[in-house]
Design a protein around this nucleic acid. Sequence first.
DNA 1: CAGAAACTGGTACGGCCGTACCAATCGAGG
DNA 2: CCTCGATTGGTACGGCCGTACCAGTTTCTG
Lengths: 201, 201
Amino acid sequence: MAATGGASRPATAKGAARREAIVAAAARLVATEGPDGTSHRAVAAAAGVPLAATTYYFRSLDDLLVAAVERAADDELGPVTELVAALPRRRTSADRVAGIVLDVVLGPDRLEDADLQAHYERFLAGGRHPALRPVLRQTRRRVDALLTEALDRCGHAGADTAQLVAVLDGTVISALVEGDGRARVRARAAVAALLESDSSA
Amino acid sequence: MAATGGASRPATAKGAARREAIVAAAARLVATEGPDGTSHRAVAAAAGVPLAATTYYFRSLDDLLVAAVERAADDELGPVTELVAALPRRRTSADRVAGIVLDVVLGPDRLEDADLQAHYERFLAGGRHPALRPVLRQTRRRVDALLTEALDRCGHAGADTAQLVAVLDGTVISALVEGDGRARVRARAAVAALLESDSSA
DNA sequence: CAGAAACTGGTACGGCCGTACCAATCGAGG
DNA sequence: CCTCGATTGGTACGGCCGTACCAGTTTCTG
């Protein structure tokens, strides 16, 4: 067994690469299909490895899921970090800032309702898979820090990021029920409205 | 077959009672376990009927799920309607109003994180089960109307109910990730804060 | 009192699931 | 080279799932 002590860390370069491929495929699945669609067999098929490889490198599906969510967060936060770092330091209109807030919290590429659906299923999954909670919490904090930095650069320092994120999340979830594909648009409007009412206060 | 034309309406009193029992059990399951935990077998066991009864009265699991979500909404909105109707018509402090908002939107009895988890899984389920969307939309609208009425009675007429609900939903979802059982408390604080900033504007 | 329709309940099929098992293969250290 | 641990991949088990089937029973109707 490669797994000394119970975990499953690869001991060879090839093994590491394979584990890598599995995690990457799982992260892709989590991001597109949600955690419920992320099964051993689905991951194995997506990664192009036999079923047994997924149980060889991860003690359980929960372990695999944790690695996948961790990876999905990294995959998404990398570009966002660059995006924030590239933000010019100048006062920006509420409407434009709203777009930036969406890019930071949701990622710039999550445009379709289906993508947003998977995004929020991931959060809710914390309830059924407690092992996911630490990484979800951590991700939340990283996003919050990024958002604070972004708002600071746009001349909105001191904004209540928790409230901003809450309005965004809540609006998306309501919009997903409508099912008209306008979730992101609605969320942007809601964030812009909140930003404007804040700056007028 | 009882189902003339394809649907499955009972033709006898006993049949109606049985269908009733199934819907009631399914609604209970949806409210406590979430839609994913609501299977034919789980419902049959909870209702104390054989498995086949669930497929006899409902063409598919989706049909059963729709009936269950509809029923769950009715079960919850009834008490809330009475609660709102009993609200005295007088200006009320933001903090107290926040508690009322939570009672209306979440229901007065959904106190534990697990209950809230199931509540939001129900909304997200609309994405995977499009048949649920109409009833979810309808429920959303009923809650919004109730909330408008409640706020009016408390001297907060004209409040942005959509924004209020969004902050509430978003806060609960973030809090569920924390997993410390304080979701409802946090949401109440967030709603109170928003109400206060609104009235000061 | 038939006969038909509604209902009952046990059973089964095919599918996907997580996980376990194990013989075969590979690759580096002796 | 040879050995041994790492890795591979095919297979299987038991479980839950949605759904279908059907012989038997009840209940309504003419």
